[in-house]
Every structure is written in C-alpha cells, then in structure tokens.
Simulated assay, not measured.
Amino acid sequence: MTDTALSTIAATLYAELPCNFISARDARVKAADGGELAAQIKALRKPSVAAWVVNLFAQERTAQLAEALRLAEELRKAQADLDAATLAKLGRERRTLTRRLAQNAVELATSRGERISASTLDAVERTISAAFFDPDAAAAVASGRLVRELDPSESVDLGAAVGGGTPEAPAPPAVPADEVSARRERRAAQRALRDAEQARERAEHTQMQAEKAHRDAAARMQSLEARVVELEAELAQTRTEAERARTAAAATAESEASAVGHLAEAERVESAAKDALDALIRAQSS
C-alpha cells in the first residue's frame, strides 16, 4: 500500500512540465511544513521527459490506457491457448496499438508546449510496450508516477521506476457478467475449432499416407503380375524344348543300340576272317 497523501502529491508533481518540477516540488515541501511527508516529497526525483509524457497520458487518458492494458492482460493469459498464426496476428495488432498510444501521448505533451524529440517518442513507445508484457510495468505506467522510461526487455524495479511509493496493479474496467460469459464461450469455441482443425489436418495426413501406400502396393502388384506372365511363358517354352530334347534323346538311344549291334557283327566277322587267314597260313606252311 502507498501513502495516499504522498502518492497523490507525487502524481500531481509528475504531471507538471519537467521544467517546473523542481519549483513545484519545493513549494509542496514548504507547504508540508516539515515532518516525514515533507522529507518524502523532497526525495521525489525529477522524471525524464519520456516518463513525464507517459505520466501525463496515464492521468489524462486514464480510460483509454486502462482499456489497452486490460486487453494486454487478456492476451497474456490467452497466449497458451493460441496458435502461432493467431499470436503473430495479435502481436502485429499490439505493436500498432502501442505506436498509436505513444503518438497520442506525445501529441498530448506537445499541446502543453513541450517539444518532443524522435528519441523521446521511441522511449515512450518502449515504455508502453513494456506495460503490455509485464504486470509490474503496467502498474508503473498506470500509476502516472514514472520517474524514468521502461524497456520491454528488462525487469521492472518499481521502487526505482516509480516515485511516491510502490503502485498497486491497475484495476481493470468493469466488464458486464454477460460479456465475460460471452468471451469465455468464444474462447471455448475458438479452442474447439482449433482442435477440430488440427484433427482434420491429422486425418488428411493419414489419408495421404494411406493413398500413397495403396498406390505403391498396386504398382508392385502389377509389376509382379507382369513378371508371373513372363515366367509362365518362359516355363512353357522350356517345357517344349525339354520335350524336343526327350524325343531327340530317344532317337539317339535307338541309333546307339543299332550301332552297337553293327559293331558286334563287324567284330565277329573280323574274328572269323582272322581265324580263316591263320588256318590258311598254317596249311601252306606244312
């Protein structure tokens, strides 16, 4: 909890033009007439120009800033349920909103007679962006008591970033119960749709795999059937050639048997002729 008197005075001082801060703070110290409150006011540090721009916007455009921070809080809570495409889309929308809020804040500061440089505008945008990512940064921005600009990539030290005491988290604008219910139902329906889309994608993938497997099996079946036809033709041709060889073998067997008979007869005739010759020679010799 912050001290109400100190935080109220700090908020007023941090909305002053930067060039008037010191004199306005000293006047508040003098009005406090000593004591702890005076010392606390005296300890308030002068804000940077970028911090002052954000403070001015937070105090004079409270509703606009609070609505933006509430949407940022809802997005942080919903991130776990969102797909990459939706998150990318929301991220682009958030960056656009951040730039618009920063530009509006700078225009408000310019209307107070302050010249705002491009580097200050950039610091304002980074500070508002930090509030979209970090609840502590959101509390610091909503307090209207920033002492320095914030950075989305750094953690927030509320004691160093805010003057006049640690701020409480900004209270979100009241949302009608029926709107809350509608949002819940819408988120549930979106989740159901995403689940259904993912299930369809998985089914499509399974179907494509099954179709490919069927095509591959059909192609292999056709190839094997064609090979069967080729092998059957080769088998028929081989059987025909085997039958011809069998017939030829039978014919040659008969020829061989006849040749064997002729050879035996020739050997018999030859032996008889030899015996006759031997007998003739013996007769002539006696």
Rank of each mutant, 00 (worst) to 15 (best):
A137I: 01
R99P: 04
A24R: 05
A31E: 15
L97M: 15
A72V: 00
A266F: 06
A192R: 06
K46F: 11
R25G: 06
R92G: 13
R184Q: 12
D83L: 01
R246C: 09
A139W: 00
A118D: 14
D134K: 06
A66M: 05
P176D: 09
R227Y: 06
L108A: 15
S223C: 09
A259K: 07
G35Y: 04
A140E: 00
A80H: 10
A51S: 05
T110L: 12
V141T: 01
R200V: 01
A10E: 02
D216T: 14
E185C: 04
R70D: 05
N104K: 15
S111K: 13
R115L: 14
I41H: 03
S143K: 01
A259T: 11
P18T: 04
S143W: 00
N55Y: 04
R61F: 06
S181V: 06
E93V: 03
M1A: 11
A142D: 01
R99T: 15
T206K: 07
D157H: 05
R246H: 15
K42I: 07
R220V: 10
S119W: 07
D178P: 05
A264D: 08
A51H: 01
E234G: 08
H262P: 00
S153R: 15
A24W: 08
A72Y: 04
A131E: 01
Q237F: 10
L158S: 06
A88V: 02
L65V: 02
T166S: 09
R227P: 04
S48G: 15
D216I: 12
R45M: 14
R282T: 10
A105S: 01
E114N: 13
G163E: 02
